[in-house]
């Protein structure tokens, strides 16, 4: 029999994983919604965030420094990826972008093996968050509570930014009709580059945040990219609102599954995706026209 305490713990851990996934998936869904690019290298950017974090912490830098510098470095990698590999392919069949980003994912994996080796690496949570905290009578690590709070605030800020700021309006318009936005005087290719770079920063940030909780390995990108795509399919392709809600759903599902049926955690996520596809093929928030939400 599962106790109340265990359920509360699974809920909090599920939410923490969900908000971190939301950070990861927010960028992926923005890139798809605006640029129609299925970025299979997104998991690699997440992985690079974790490795850059490990390196910075090992080199004597603090976790906090890594939390700022590593995502920015991943953002630069993302910017270069977009400018040199994706930009020449805009307007072509989606298959070209799928193949290029898949190729990039393997290039990054092999490069990581060359630089950091094949064995798993870990980096510790910052000492200031090494203790525990009591929530609803249940004890958690302070680091997990920090990640939950930090990612919740960040995802909420991104959401508000997309809904309420001029940049958000520009992105909504670009998602709807990029050609018209260009004809109004905005350089849409720069908008694309900016969005891709920010998407890389968010992926890198998720990598640093999950680094202390998970083993950092050269193959970690693969499971994450599968999970991320399952989430954007569940939420509705290219729909930001859907991606956030689906991230929380998958996070909670993962949390409860880890408690109740740990062997079937991943299976349940993809079963949820299959059910959503059967019941609502466009995803929970998706529309037939692909409204970016």
């Amino acid at each position: 029999m599962v106790g109340f305490e265990a359920l509360v713990r699974a809920t909090i851990l599920g939410l923490q994983f969900g908000t971190t996934l939301a950070l990861l998936v927010a960028g992926l869904t923005l890139v798809f919604g605006l640029m129609d690019v299925i970025n299979l290298a997104h998991g690699s950017l997440y992985m690079l965030g974790a490795y850059f974090g490990v390196t910075l912490v090992d080199a004597g830098g603090s976790f906090w420094l890594a939390l700022v510098v590593a995502p920015v470095a991943v953002g630069v990698v993302g910017l270069l990826m977009e400018v040199f590999t994706l930009r020449p392919l805009y307007g072509r069949e989606p298959l070209y972008q799928i193949l290029v980003t898949l190729g990039l994912a393997f290039v990054v994996e092999e490069s990581v093996k060359e630089v950091w080796g094949t064995s798993a690496q870990n980096f510790a949570a910052p000492a200031v968050l090494a203790g525990s905290i009591d929530i609803a009578g249940v004890t958690y690590s302070q680091y997990q509570a920090f990640v939950l709070l930090f990612t919740t605030v960040l995802v909420a800020a991104i959401w508000v930014g997309l809904e309420r700021t001029n940049v958000g309006v520009l992105l909504q318009a670009t998602a709807h009709d990029p050609e018209m936005v260009d004809a109004l005087g905005f350089d849409v290719s720069r908008v694309f580059t900016g969005v891709f770079a920010v998407s890389a920063v968010l992926a890198g940030l998720a990598g640093v945040l999950l680094g202390p909780a998970r083993a950092v390995t050269p193959s970690m990108w693969f499971n994450v990219v599968l999970l991320a795509f399952a989430i954007i399919v569940i939420g509705g392709l290219g729909n930001f609102r859907g991606a956030i809600v689906a991230s929380l759903l998958v996070g909670l599902l993962t949390g409860y599954a880890a408690l109740l049926v740990p062997s079937y955690t991943e299976l349940l996520v993809f079963a949820l995706m299959a059910v959503v596809l059967l019941v609502r093929p466009a995803g929970i928030f998706g529309t037939a026209t692909g409204d970016p939400g």
């Binding site: 001029n166 309006v169 909504q172 709807h176 109004l184 905005f186």
Partner: peptide, 17 residues
């Protein structure tokens, strides 16, 4: 841009110049 308000449509275009 149908999902934007009238004001957002106008302000977006205005922001380009």
């Amino acid at each position: 841009f149908p999902s934007l308000t009238v004001a957002e449509n106008v302000e977006l275009a205005a922001a380009a110049g």
